[in-house]
Simulated assay, not measured.
Amino acid sequence: MHDFFGAIIALRLPWLTFFTIVRPIADIICLILQVTLIGWVPASIWAVYSLSQYKTDQKIKEALGSRQF
């Protein structure tokens, strides 16, 4: 269910997605894109992609964190 709401936020408020995954420079760039009507679509696509990459990175960290050498 959390993935669904994250995707909705990424589509509606793309800059907020970058704020939640702690990427401040991307957040500002995305907000500037979102201000323009034409830039909203690329900002949304970028936010959805970045959110999926962030979740993949978190899963990899969890998997590698449980391994002991």
Score class of each variant (00 low, 15 high):
G65Q: 04
Q58R: 15
A63R: 12
E62C: 09
I8S: 04
P42Y: 01
I32R: 05
K61G: 14
A43P: 00
T36V: 05
A10Q: 00
I28S: 04
L37A: 10
K59P: 04
I21P: 01
I28H: 03
S44M: 11
V41A: 06
T17Y: 01
V48C: 04
F19R: 09
S50Q: 10
L31K: 02
L11P: 03
D27T: 13
Q53W: 12
M1W: 06
F19C: 09
A7P: 02
F4N: 06
D27R: 10
S44Y: 02
V35K: 07
S52G: 06
A10W: 00
F18N: 00
L33I: 04
D3E: 13
K61Y: 09
Q34V: 08
D27I: 10
V41T: 10
S44T: 09
L13R: 15
F4C: 06
F69E: 14
F19K: 12
I21S: 01
R23N: 05
G65D: 05
S50E: 07
E62L: 12
I28F: 07
R67H: 15
I32L: 15
A47S: 07
D57V: 12
D57C: 12
H2Q: 14
F69W: 06
F4Y: 10
Q58P: 06
I9P: 00
V35D: 05
C30S: 04
I25Q: 08
I38K: 03
W40T: 06
F19V: 11
W46G: 04
I32K: 05
P24Y: 03
H2C: 14
F19Y: 11
H2Y: 12
T36Q: 03
P42V: 03
L64E: 15
A43T: 00
P14Y: 01
V35P: 04
W15D: 07
I25T: 14
Q34S: 12
F5K: 07
I9Y: 01
A43Y: 00
L37P: 07
F69V: 11
I45Y: 05
R23L: 12
G65I: 01
A43R: 00
S52C: 08
Y49T: 12
S50I: 07
P24F: 05
V48L: 07
I28A: 05
G6E: 11
Q58H: 11
S44L: 03
I25M: 08
I21D: 00
L37Q: 08
G65C: 05
F19L: 15
Q68W: 03
L51G: 00
D3W: 13
T20I: 15
R12M: 13
T20M: 15
T56D: 09
Q53P: 07
Q68S: 14
K55D: 04
E62R: 15
Y49I: 10
T56V: 10
L64W: 10
A7T: 13
F19P: 03
I45C: 02
L64P: 09
P42F: 02
G6T: 08
T56W: 08
T17A: 05
V48R: 00
I60D: 06
I21Y: 03
D27Q: 15
I60T: 10
T17C: 06
M1Y: 09
Q53I: 13
M1E: 11
I9C: 04
F5M: 14
